[in-house]
Design a protein around this nucleic acid. Structure first.
Length: 410
RNA sequence: GCCAGGGUAGGGUAGUCUGGUUAUCCUAAGGGACUGUGGAUCCCUCGACCCGGGUUCAAAUCUCGGCCCUGGCCCCA
């Protein structure tokens, strides 16, 4: 038997309903903040992703050549594509641009809990606003979205200025090595590397920086940093807005293109892959041949949110089954249409089963049954049976519709 | 790429240690009896040893390789 490809999943209706429910909660937050959905291709020129993240990531991407000999890749993330689209299509649109997306991404990695080869990201990109309140808005949205899903999380906010200030005398390559140690919390390796670089004293300052939890402490360790005023403002806005976060100046995000604020969200009960959100302020446009533009954004690992939420029973649609005999069939079709027109999910027997068998089936799949046999076809009334209580009565169609409607609104 | 544990009908399972009848049971699904409550009862049907090699008279069972799943390491844009 043919199996689905490694790291991919099938979603049955129950699970899709649960996923859509959460998806729409995220969409609703984006909408309320004025972020409108965009969509980019599922595959792009390979170069788009290697320019952003380096050649090394080719190993972790689905890379292929098309029949025209083009080097392409399934998107491993969306931010690069969104910025490419901005440069291609929307450079002169009035700033700021508030965009969001919900799309699947593909990475060739070893699957494990919360990590799949096809996975979904919900993301937000704010393009062209380079202010404290812009940073704060994006972080607020991140918090609102996680709140909306109901997931239990920690939001950690940091800023690259502090680390960059401490590392300002190091070459970029050396900075990257140090950042890598920090990101992994590998303090032994950190001390060793810094000793080799002739900066052993830095190890202590960096360790102190990472463990401090207030802006004042960080400033005390590092001294004045560029953009200090803006950081203070951003955090002030977050505090005023009641955003729950903790400061963490150890967030490096392992990236060269983040420029200022960075933040990450972590969920409980997820094991090794517990990061559910990551983002920050960045500059990418110049890589793709555009004028440089400040951006700030984040992406939520949708599948990890779903794993963390566990089995939340989806809100069930009220289901009405139309049960009829041959004499009632014509009338039953009219009745079904009347119910459907009011928005009620209405299902008819397609198996040519007897009345009893239809009811037996309805009892497993529906909340109400409307019985239409010879008697109802002649009288013009319907028999409505509540399949949970077994209670049943004969009444006119409008009253039956009203009762089922009322049950759905309970 | 590395480590550990797994893989028996759609779902859940027994059997594997100690090779040997027609592979167990529950459930789901389909059909029938019944023909206005059948949501019951009874009967029937469908349906599996992940794949491939090896050992053997004989493999779900032992063995080797692969695939896939679960978790961890690495990586994580």
């Amino acid at each position: 038997m043919l199996q689905k490809p490694r790291g991919t999943r099938d979603f049955l209706p129950d699970e899709m309903e649960a996923r859509r429910t959460v998806e729409w909660k995220l969409r609703e937050v984006a909408r309320r903040f004025g972020y409108r959905e965009v969509c980019t291709p599922a595959f792009e020129d390979l170069e788009l992703f290697t320019q952003r993240s380096g050649e090394g990531i080719t190993n972790e991407m689905y890379v292929f050549e098309d029949k025209g000999g083009r080097k392409l890749a399934l998107r491993p993330e969306i931010t690069a594509a969104v910025i490419r689209m901005y440069i291609n299509e929307a450079k002169v649109a009035p700033k700021p641009l508030r965009w969001c997306y919900f799309a699947d991404c593909f990475r060739y990695e070893r699957p494990q809990k919360g990590r799949y080869r096809q996975f979904w990201q919900f993301g937000v990109e704010l393009i062209g606003a380079d202010t404290a309140i812009a940073d704060a808005e994006v972080i607020m949205i991140a918090a609102e979205m996680l709140n909306a899903t109901g997931v239990t999380y920690d939001l950690k906010v940091g800023h690259l200025s502090f680390m960059k200030q401490l590392l300002r005398d190091l070459e970029p390559a050396a900075q990257r090595r140090v950042m890598a140690h920090l990101d992994k919390k590998d303090f032994d390796g950190l001390g060793q590397t810094l000793a080799e670089m002739g900066k052993p004293d830095l190890a202590q300052s960096l360790t102190n920086l990472i463990s401090c939890r207030t802006l004042a402490e960080a400033l005390e360790i590092v001294g004045a940093v560029p953009g200090e005023e803006r950081i203070t403002q951003t955090l002030g806005i977050l505090d005023a807005a009641g955003v729950r976060y903790s400061l963490n100046f150890g967030i490096a995000r392992g990236l060269d293109y983040y420029t200022g604020m960075v933040f990450e969200g972590f969920a409980q009960n997820l094991g090794a892959e517990n990061q559910i959100l990551g983002g920050g302020a960045y500059r990418l446009a110049h890589l793709f041949g555009g004028d440089d533009v400040a951006s700030c954004g984040f992406a939520i690992g949708f599948d990890r949110v779903m794993v963390s939420l566990g089995n939340v029973p989806p809100k069930k649609d009220t289901v009405l089954a139309i049960v009829c005999t041959n004499e009632g069939r014509r009338r039953a079709l009219d009745v079904a249409r009347a119910f459907r027109e009011t928005g009620i999910r209405t299902e008819m027997d397609l198996m040519e089963r007897g009345l009893g068998a239809q009811l037996a089936h309805a009892s497993k799949t529906a909340d109400y049954a409307v019985v239409i046999g010879k008697r109802e076809a002649e009288s013009g009334e319907v028999t409505l049976k509540n399949l949970h209580t077994g209670e049943q009565k004969t009444l006119d169609l409008a009253a039956a519709v009203a009762e089922v409607k009322a049950y759905g609104a309970r």
